[in-house]
Simulated scan of single mutants.
Amino acid sequence: MTDVAVPPPAPTTQTRARAEVAVAGVRVAPPVRRQAGAGPSDDGHVRLDGRGAALPLDPSSPFEVVDGRLLRDGDDVGLEVEAVDRPRFYDLATADGVPYEQLARLHGTDVLASTVIQTCIRYGEDDRCRFCAIESSLRAGATTRVKTPPQLAEVAEAAVRLDGVRQVVLTTGTTATPDRGARYLARCVAAIRRAVPGLPVQVQCEPPDDLAVLSELSMVGATSIGIHVESLDDEVRRRWMPGKAHVPLDDYWRAWDAAVRTFGRNQVSTYLLVGLGEDPDELVAGASELVARGVYPFVVPFRPLVGTLAADHPAPDPAVLAEVTERVAAVLRAAGMRGADQGAGCAACGACSVLSTAGG
């Protein structure tokens, strides 16, 4: 890992407030919310000072929304809040009766997101990522096991036409095949791009054994890719992601480098979670090396999620989240990389992170 010294800037008032609400959440659920799923979130979607934000829902939070303002214990923290309306495509269903809402969800303000395969080979008790609830939503009947390419194309066309969706994110549970599910993602991307030409699509998967599949994803129209490691600390990986920890970090670096060659600089991203026990300086150093290789480190707070193995684990200190976010944002600005410049994906949306508030 490159030894990078990044002086910790003092987080701005806005970044501190955004970090606090990212951790503590809000008391009242907005119309659009996401429960369980493949990622570390259980949240409501709003516009916070004009930016999409995914905020945890917690009745014990000191934050509430009153008359379009975010209040902490009754005091205005200086952030405007606007609810994201329930999308109209949620009211539709496929010809065989599957509700669109079970096939894809609105994230942030204008992102259509779907987990195309809602099972994972790493979901056994001893292998499961401790923050993941990918199969919980399936057992609850909130989604379907496999979304077919025609179904996703149908939903995408409706979401663009009815609700102004501007990008798509497709993720998958890891499959037992050497491509780790990437080739099925390619089929889904191709179908969506045929239905809505020009609609940006990000795909997300583990590093495939055969890196040639990355070119296949690009050829069918994937705009960008997320290859998510969550932590660059092997001890943290073994503790929090025991199944994924069997994939060596060297495999991730090879996949990231190949993806940058295929999709371009700043069109490849990875999650880095704050709050898993990784040293903040090491996290920033790892993020800096990712940036140097053209990969966007999407820094996100760990969030305790019902239905996961870490439901009772404490959320990170907001002050640590704010400081780490400011430091990584400074590295990104120096490199000329912004999440908003990605064609599609979590970094382009930015709702689950504080990076966009900090200028990253």
Rank of each mutant, 00 (worst) to 15 (best):
A319W: 00
D257P: 01
P11I: 04
C120Y: 09
R86W: 11
G307V: 04
V168S: 12
G277A: 09
D3G: 09
Y123D: 13
C205V: 15
E230F: 01
A351D: 10
R72L: 03
P197F: 06
A190V: 07
T119K: 15
D110G: 10
V203Y: 08
L309D: 03
V299C: 04
G74L: 01
P59D: 14
R47A: 07
T109I: 01
A330S: 15
V169P: 00
P301W: 07
D250W: 08
A212Y: 02
N266D: 10
G74C: 08
M337Y: 14
V229L: 11
V300K: 12
V220Q: 04
C188A: 15
P7T: 11
V28G: 01
A153K: 12
S231K: 05
L138F: 10
K147C: 07
L232N: 03
G97R: 13
Y184Q: 04
V229E: 00
R105G: 02
W240C: 06
T148D: 00
E135C: 03
A53V: 04
V274P: 01
G359K: 06
V98W: 07
P248E: 05
K147Q: 08
V295F: 11
R139V: 14
A195Q: 06
Q167S: 11
F63I: 01
V354C: 15
E282F: 13
S269A: 12
P31Q: 06
S218A: 15
Q267S: 04
V4Y: 07
A53D: 09
S224W: 13
L79E: 05
L214A: 03
V196F: 08
P280A: 06
I134R: 12
L71T: 06
P56G: 02
L321P: 00
D250H: 09
D42L: 07
A311T: 07
L55G: 04
L138G: 08
A358H: 06
R293K: 10
A255L: 05
L103P: 05
P149D: 08
V32D: 12
F63S: 07
L138S: 06
A10H: 11
T12Q: 02
H246N: 08
R145M: 08
G286Y: 09
D233N: 14
W256C: 02
V26T: 14
P11F: 04
G345R: 07
P301H: 13
Q14Y: 01
G68S: 13
Q204H: 12
V247E: 15
R237T: 06
